[in-house]
C-alpha cells in the first residue's frame, strides 16, 4: 500500500496551521494548499489518503474542487470542512461523494479522530473482517461511494455478525429505501418508443 498522507485545503492560514498541528501526532505527512487550484496541482504529483477541503474559498470553491476530485481521482477520501450553519452546502457535498464533514470551530481531537477513522477504514479489507465493529467501520465506505449493492452486501454481513446491533438494520433499511427511490426515478424516465414499426418476422 502506498504511504499515507493528508492534504489540508483552506483559504485561511489559521485553519491550515491548526489542522496541521492537530494531525501532527498521527505521524503522517500533512501538506497544505491555500486554495482549490493549489490543491488540484498538488494532487497531480501526490496521492493523498484523505483531503480536508474547505467549502468556502476564494476562486474555485470547495464544491467545484470536490467535483474535480471525484472525476479525476475517485479513490481519494474527501472530508468537507464547513462554517457553522452551512447545512445545504454540506448536504450537497455529501451527495457528491464526500465521506464526512467537520464543522468549524473544531477541536484537535475531532480532527485526529476523523482522520484516524477514515484511514482505518482504508486499511480494512473485506476478507480479513470478522467482527461487527470492523464491518460497521467498513460499511460506511461504499455508502459514501454511493455503491448501493456493495453497501447492502457489507451491511448484510454486519447484521449476521452482530444480529443484536440496531445500527446495521437501520442502515440496511435506508439502503433499501435508496434503492426503491432509484427504481421510482427510473420509472419516471420517458419510455423509449421504436421509431420504425415492428415487422413480424424481421428479427
Amino acid at each position: 500500500m502506498s504511504e499515507k498522507s493528508i492534504l489540508v485545503v483552506d483559504g485561511e492560514q489559521n485553519v491550515r496551521t491548526m489542522m496541521t498541528q492537530a494531525l501532527e501526532p498521527l505521524g503522517i505527512p500533512v501538506q497544505t494548499a491555500i486554495n482549490g487550484e493549489d490543491a488540484l496541482k498538488k494532487m497531480e504529483t501526490t496521492t493523498y489518503s484523505v483531503v480536508f477541503l474547505d467549502l468556502k474559498m476564494p476562486g474555485m470553491d470547495g464544491l467545484k474542487v470536490l467535483r474535480h476530485i471525484q472525476q479525476e481521482r475517485p479513490g481519494v477520501r474527501v472530508v468537507i470542512v464547513s462554517a457553522h450553519g452551512s447545512v445545504e452546502s454540506v448536504a450537497e457535498a455529501m451527495k457528491l461523494g464526500a465521506v464526512d464533514f467537520l464543522e468549524k470551530p473544531f477541536t484537535p481531537t475531532e480532527v485526529r479522530d476523523l482522520a484516524t477513522q477514515i484511514l482505518e477504514r482504508e486499511v480494512l479489507e473485506t476478507s480479513q473482517v470478522i467482527h461487527f465493529p470492523d464491518w460497521a467501520t467498513l460499511m460506511h465506505e461504499p455508502v459514501s461511494d454511493r455503491s448501493i449493492a456493495c453497501a447492502r452486501d457489507i451491511v448484510c454481513r454486519a447484521v449476521s455478525t452482530g444480529p443484536s446491533r440496531a445500527e446495521a438494520y437501520t442502515l440496511l433499511a435506508s439502503l433499501f429505501e435508496v434503492g426503491f427511490q432509484r427504481l421510482e426515478e427510473m420509472k419516471q424516465l420517458p419510455k423509449v418508443k421504436p421509431t420504425e414499426p415492428f415487422i413480424e418476422g424481421e428479427l
Binding site: 489559521n14 496551521t17 491548526m18 498541528q21 468549524k104 470551530p105
Partner: peptide, 8 residues
C-alpha cells in the same frame, strides 16, 4: 496575525 484560532 499569528493567532491560529477561530473567531465567533
Amino acid at each position: 496575525a499569528d493567532f491560529s484560532g477561530f473567531r465567533i
